[in-house]
Amino acid sequence: MLNLIWREYILFKQSMLFFIPFILFLTFFYDGFHTAVIFLGGSFAISFNSYAYDEKAETDILLNSLPYTRKEIIASRYLGGIVHMIVSIAFTSALLFIFNKPYTVTDIAISIALFLVFASLLFPLFHVIKKGYFLTVAVNSFLLITIPGSKVRSFVANLVTAVTEFTSGAMLAAMLIYAVSWGISVIIYERKEF
């Protein structure tokens, strides 16, 4: 299991040059938006990087010819998502701290809740959407959340306000959605043929 999560960092190594400027960009140019989005951006970048790679290669054939069960492969995606989120939060916190940008624990909590919800929606889609289209869907959904004036952004902004008021409840709900999404992904993946 750990090997499968580690795999995503080996792949991520290739994208580091993109990741750091991306977070810096969010840090400096998205001042107007909620700090939670900066954290969210980082978590998104690491998780979806491996999906982007997997979309290009015949990863399903590779992973399924190795001694892993399909349940383990899906588990590594979901547990990996949480690991990436933690890594990204640590990295982004350090950057914000270095550049003296204020943030609170609530911002982090909100970003966690949002990441879990969006990952819950997007992860199962990876196994359903035709190859080559998934990254477009993932990037567009992130842009919709962040581009000023987009309806999704104002919806998310309202969601953020709501989440801020009920952080602990929202967190629990997000975790529940993540768990349900995990179950759905297992069902889809178990039926897949490569």
Partner: peptide, 9 residues
């Protein structure tokens, strides 16, 4: 496999 299954990069 008959095709390359590894990450090309």
């Amino acid at each position: 496999c008959d095709s390359n299954v590894y990450y090309e990069g």
